[in-house]
Design a binder for these strands. Structure first.
Lengths: 215, 215
DNA sequence: GACGATCCTGACGATTTCGTCAAGTTTTAT
DNA sequence: ATAAAACTTGACGAAATCGTCAGGATCGTC
């Protein structure tokens, strides 16, 4: 018997670098993020994940203990990219340049990983119950750092006197919106679906709408 | 028999103004919007709706044909308020005042009806499949009108030359964000939960961050 | 107080879903 | 070649869910 039965059965814990495991887990996760983002946690069934992955259902359970386990793995994966764009905001940089890079990168990354972005948004919309304490802590730390940078700009009169927290929320909300609510945006812009050019326009217009000069 | 059985059975269609019916439907809808917004369509069970409404499950089915019927009723209700705030944006008004009113009213209404707002956001996140053609059409018409107003401001040099569609998306995304993703916002602002004062601050800071003067 | 319309409800069937299991097959290491 | 580890899979059980039904209770009105 390859596996132990009974309560708390533990399967191979990632320490082996099995090729097949890596390939199949990746396939399952890829299919899952699409389904979860389109139909939510409860709306997605394991059978569906199995079918779309071209695997029997029992095989999915061989790789993941439960549906929740798949979901949690995805949260962890997506979370790793969460703050990448924020790193552009550093006190020594020029505000307009730094924020420009941030907006552009955020838009581009959420465009390229639309499913992940929507998946994460859905999770946050439900209150972020799946986020670990560590992950919440990390989000806060990174946010604080960015706020500190903006505060320094303000102190040096290189940026208007705006509460950095509200300002960041505004930028974050806007950039997320384009991929998370793509159908609404596409309708508003009167295009059948959003392409790269729409995202480029968005970055440009967003930056034009922000007041960069201190009063 | 009060009801017909068999396919396409039709229950009393709202033409009678039964007091009891009105009360119970309202109670069911009120409970449902909370549950749907917290757990999504598939995550919400009729039994749960029944329990929280203090009614037996069969009684819920007496008032609504199906879970989808409840959902659709809610969509229609929430949709009626969708464009209320947008009406502030009229060409003859001052841009700063009109947009100020819009932002404040949007924030306030989504604060007061947080469940509805999250419910609607969840629906749009999934692609807005429940929205009827008429409703989509209406959203577009209203958006166009607001865009036309802004375009006029721009033509008269009373507003910077920004694509009104992107600008409106930015405002809409931001104002929605505060109630739809309240836990994230609360964490960012370092308060246990959002109160009216946070929303007031938000309105003020958002308006400070927007460039109103034409170049 | 009677009689029709409206409202209420416990029990039920059909279906779907999660997750398990035991017995197979393939890969890997020696 | 061989033995262990890793992988695969069809069938299955238990639980949950949707929606129905038939009959009983209550309300409004004449």
């Amino acid at each position: 018997m390859a596996r132990r039965t009974g309560g708390g059965s533990r399967k191979a814990n990632g320490d082996t670098d099995g090729r097949i495991r890596a390939r199949n887990e990746a396939r399952i996760l890829q299919v899952s993020v699409r389904l979860f983002s389109a139909k939510g946690f409860d709306g997605t069934t394991i059978s569906e994940i199995a079918e779309d992955s071209d695997l029997p259902k029992a095989n999915v359970y061989y790789y993941f203990q439960s549906k929740a386990a798949i979901y949690e793995r995805l949260i962890a994966e997506v979370f790793d990219d969460w703050d990448a764009a924020l790193r552009h905001i550093r006190p020594e940089r020029d505000a307009r340049e730094a924020l420009g890079d941030y907006v552009r990168e955020k838009l581009e990354s959420s465009r390229r990983n639309a499913a992940q972005s929507r998946f994460f948004a859905g999770e946050l919309l439900r209150g972020g119950k799946f986020l670990s304490r560590r992950q919440r802590r990390h989000m806060l730390d990174v946010t604080h750092e960015a706020c500190a940078a903006i505060d320094q700009w303000i102190a040096e009169k290189r940026f208007p006197d705006i509460d950095p927290r509200h300002f960041l929320i505004m930028i974050w909300a806007t950039t997320q919106f384009y991929s998370d609510f793509a159908p609404v945006v596409a309708a508003t812009l009167e295009v059948p679906r959003l392409r790269k050019s729409e995202f480029d326009d968005a970055a440009e217009q967003i930056l034009k709408a922000i007041k960069f000069d201190p009063d």
